[in-house]
């Protein structure tokens, strides 16, 4: 029972996420084929949010694994609870008994990937910023992403009863391995078109006037065309609208409020200077 792209769009919008046709199709296919979904895109286009909203729509638990350089299996899969094992030995010793098997499930510390495999109803697993982990970690993800199973030498292989919905995100700071990409569906999230960005603003900044939203979106779309070091994402434009709203409530006229809140849209000194050079053409009708 996989919802179609259209129904998905409606369901996601109901939870405040406005996805375009491509993304909805991607999610639909990921659910139908049971494949992990690899999302790439510029920072701030809502890659991570996809997993969060999916968990809200499906009602499944969201399990998040934030990647970083040096991430190892002890942090991603499982670890044995050594202090607990040690205590077990001591207790057994004081009672004059055998300690017995120390590699049982009760001594296992479950880390995100194992938790996702063992979740009874399934789960939404977010493997965030996979490009930050080193390539050794990618290699080790392969078994997991291929069959949704994890091998624990002392216990055997743990297989997922209900495969988790897996979302991977990457900022493209590093080329991912082909073997990893082959196992995933791929979708590039582009910056939203004006209509969709307006809808997002309407939903996340209540009280924003329609005309103001229109001008703001127009300005953001123009700003993204400038050769900036970092182009503002959706998160930034929402923040900008919120900031400007707050200033406008404090008595600033709208255009002034927009300019004064610019620090929420652009977060680099060089970019700010570039923007101020083009301020006239950017903000004339904002």
């Amino acid at each position: 029972m996989t919802p179609g792209p259209g129904e998905l769009a409606a369901a996601l919008a109901g939870k405040g996420y406005f996805a375009d046709e491509g993304l909805c199709t991607a999610i639909h296919l990921a659910l139908r084929l049971g494949r992990p979904l690899l999302l790439e895109g510029e920072p701030g286009v809502g890659k991570t949010e996809v997993a969060a909203v999916l968990s809200r729509v499906t009602g499944l638990e969201l399990i998040r694994l934030q990647c970083f350089e040096g991430l190892d299996s002890g942090q991603a899969l499982y670890e044995w609870d050594y202090p607990k094992q040690l205590l077990q030995v001591r207790v057994a010793e004081s009672r004059g008994q055998e300690a017995g098997d120390l590699y049982r499930e009760e001594f296992l510390l479950r880390r995100p990937l194992l938790r996702a495999v063992q979740a009874e109803r399934g789960a939404v697993l977010l493997i965030d910023e996979i490009d930050r982990a080193d390539s050794e970690f990618e290699a080790f993800l392969l078994e997991f992403l291929g069959d949704f199973q994890i091998t624990i030498p002392e216990l055997g292989t743990v297989r997922a009863g209900t495969p988790p919905i897996v979302v991977l995100t990457s900022n493209r700071t590093r080329e991912l391995h082909d073997a990893l990409k082959r196992r995933c569906l791929y979708h590039w999230i582009a910056f939203p078109e004006p209509d969709r960005e307006r809808a997002i603003l309407r939903a996340s900044v209540p009280g924003l006037e329609e005309r103001a939203a229109e001008g703001l979106v127009r300005a953001v779309q123009r700003v993204r065309r400038l050769p900036l070091l970092k182009r503002p994402g959706i998160a930034e434009s929402v923040e900008w609208a919120r900031g400007a709203m707050a200033l406008a409530e404090g008595g600033d006229p709208w255009p002034v409020a927009l300019r004064r809140a610019l620090g929420l849209l652009i977060k680099d000194e060089e970019d700010t200077r570039l923007l101020l050079d083009h301020a006239e053409e950017l903000f004339t009708d904002a």
């Binding site: 296919l29 139908r32 791929y186």
Partner: peptide, 22 residues
């Protein structure tokens, strides 16, 4: 399994399953 009802859907099917890099 689900014949694409229109061309854009076929496009997205093909792009999401086949493309590996933007």
């Amino acid at each position: 399994e689900t014949p694409p009802p229109d061309l854009p859907t076929l496009y997205w099917y093909a792009r999401i399953t086949l493309l590996q890099d933007v």
